[in-house]
């Protein structure tokens, strides 16, 4: 039995559609406007505000979430497109009361974050890398990281955090 998600009063003029999807392991049924971006569904309807919105045109990467285990831009995804998918956000990485997971801890250990706004996006992409069948090579890691903008850290510590996380999940890398 899936949980129903409340929606605001029906002042929205666009067509409403029912979607069933799983968010952080929770099966949900929701009525949403066709135009509702996944980022706004997660943040506004589900109050999962850990997913941040930085540019709404797919460049900054702050809104990155996992849809069926692959990182995608939630600002460039309509909620209705996600019917039948499993979505994971930063809130779903660790249960309340449990210690941080390897990826989260790596960002903490390496001071891989300052204002924390871009962090959830980096963490979700890094989570996908840590779950890959084998350790991605350096160029692949660089490619994935280039999909995220950070304005605070200068990236050095983010790279160190990703390295630590992947060392922990895949064993030490070939390089460095």
């Amino acid at each position: 039995m899936s949980e129903r998600v409340d929606h605001p009063p029906l002042t929205e003029p666009t067509a409403w559609r029912g979607v069933e999807l799983v968010v952080n392991g929770r099966p949900l049924t929701a009525q949403v406007e066709s135009r509702l971006l996944l980022s706004d569904f997660l943040r506004g309807r589900l109050r999962l505000t850990g997913t941040h919105v930085g540019c709404e045109h797919g460049v900054c990467g702050a809104c990155t979430v996992l849809v069926d285990d692959v990182p995608v831009r939630s600002c460039l995804t309509l909620t209705v497109q996600c019917a039948g998918t499993h979505i994971r956000t930063i809130e779903g990485l660790t249960t309340a009361g449990k210690p941080l997971g390897a990826v989260q801890r790596a960002f903490h250990d390496n001071h891989g974050m300052q204002c924390g706004f871009c962090t959830p996006g980096f963490v979700m992409t890094c989570t996908a890398l840590s779950e890959a069948a084998e350790r991605p090579d350096e160029d692949h890691i660089a490619d994935e990281l280039s999909g995220h903008l950070c304005r605070c850290t200068g990236y050095r510590n983010i790279r160190a955090a990703v390295r630590q996380a992947l060392d922990e999940t895949h064993g030490k890398g070939q390089t460095e």
């Binding site: 999962l48 505000t49 850990g50 997913t51 956000t89 930063i90 809130e91 990485l93 660790t94 309340a96 941080l100 989260q104 960002f107 903490h108 974050m113 924390g116 706004f117 962090t119 959830p120 963490v123």
Partner: peptide, 10 residues
């Protein structure tokens, strides 16, 4: 400050 932010609780 990190732990809260890393759990998405900023």
């Amino acid at each position: 400050e990190d732990e809260r932010l890393l759990r998405g609780h900023g």
